[in-house]
Design a protein around this nucleic acid. Structure first.
Lengths: 226, 226
DNA sequence: ATAAATATTTCGAACGCTCGATCGAAAAAT
DNA sequence: ATTTTTCGATCGAGCGTTCGAAATATTTAT
């Protein structure tokens, strides 16, 4: 599957993220009309992700955000009851979306070899489609209060476990040789992360995402192949 | 070489970093006594690195810094003419130190195979010894003005070139099979980075640094081995 | 050797500014 | 007529930086 095909398939599910957030938090949210809320959450989160990528979430002021989203301070506080709500939305809904998509795409595969390839490819494609989200996950996690670090840490461990389970399954089936699935799982995550954390490097060298996916798969398989 | 041995060898060179900074910037710096300056730069940068790791450089206030270093606001501004000077010191002197050490340790090795192993091990050990520096390099680069991103970007590309050159040398000597040394170099950097960016994971699992070094070397060699 | 004079360093209050958040009034939708 | 949403001025707190006075260290004069 090429990246283009992947995007075409998945694009429609994106707005659902905001609709679910609105429905789950109706009581807190002062806006009553769902469609209006969803429309403005899309604009606000896109603006917040853009500004956070530029200067960091901390350095982004609520005034910056209103300017970027074309909204006043007063209106903004009808959608979020504070700056921290924005951070929480991105982390919580974002990680849930990633998890759902990874599960959906890997569930269809039969053998561990093919499952490993599909997981890597889907994960990489997702990180490209949601580039600003992934960058946000990483950059804006470190310096949070303990309780706000829970979601990102659990998500990190969950995806790593996804890879570990595939590797173990392959080892049981006699297809892989894996002495330490934990280290290999961490290595896969690290290689995938490099694509969006050092994006400027790969863009500058003109490396297409499909080629990078092939490279990561080959790199990992060289180590686990019997 | 174990990590302990490496630390014992290198520790003494650390204070030199501050002494050189002071001598090269004497004109700007309002403190006249070199030893006093060096002593307080050590305390100030250590405090700045600790606070930056905790809450990020942006979120660290100059008042936080004076509290952590046991110094008043007025005194602080005798050592730095602004918050940005602190950032610049860490980036510039830090990267220079890393480069010097990598060169020093890899220069001694003869063949490309041994050179690759030594580079990986030295790089990893350095990142552990200077953990807060490396974390700072990564976290505090993204959101800087263009001109302040130059040093980190050049350093990233320099170390990657170090690996690329070793890989090419090995390919010429017929010892390695490397189709794309750029991608392999980037992958090595990514794996090394994971050690200090996701340190909590490795600490939590009780993986010693020597074991991780062996893993990275084995992982890379499995791919480049003919 | 000691006191006076000078140079160096430290101190914390104060300044101007921007921040996140609030609020009552205006506008728009129902 | 009522509800819902938007607006931008306003608040107190905290920011980076400055500054004149106090404290300390060093040099000079006696």
């Amino acid at each position: 599957m090429t990246y283009r095909e992947f995007v075409a398939e998945i694009m429609s599910s994106v707005e659902d993220v905001y609709r679910r957030y609105y429905r789950e938090n109706r009581r807190r949210i002062r806006i009553k009309k769902e469609d209006l809320a969803v429309k403005n959450y899309v604009a606000l989160i896109n603006a917040a992700l853009r500004l956070s990528a530029e200067k960091g979430f901390q350095a982004m002021s609520m005034r910056d955000l209103t300017r970027e989203a074309g909204m006043s301070m007063g209106a903004l506080y009808y959608y979020f009851s504070g700056k921290n709500d924005i951070l929480a939305l991105i982390h919580k809904e974002g990680h849930k979306f990633v998890k759902d998509m990874l599960l959906k795409y890997t569930a269809g595969e039969s053998g561990p070899a093919q499952k490993l390839r599909t997981a890597i490819r889907t994960h990489l494609y997702l990180s490209e489609l949601m580039r600003l989200w992934f960058q946000f996950f990483f950059m804006e996690t470190k310096h949070q209060a303990k309780k706000d670090r829970k979601v990102p840490i659990e998500s990190e461990l969950w995806t790593e476990k996804l890879y570990m389970d595939i590797l173990r399954e392959g080892a049981r089936a006699g297809m892989f040789r894996v002495d330490d699935p934990g280290l290999v799982g961490a290595a896969i995550k690290s290689l995938l992360q490099d694509w969006y954390l050092k994006r400027w490097k790969y863009v500058h060298r003109g490396i297409p995402i499909e080629k990078y996916a092939e490279f990561v798969i080959a790199f990992v398989e060289a180590y686990v192949k019997k």
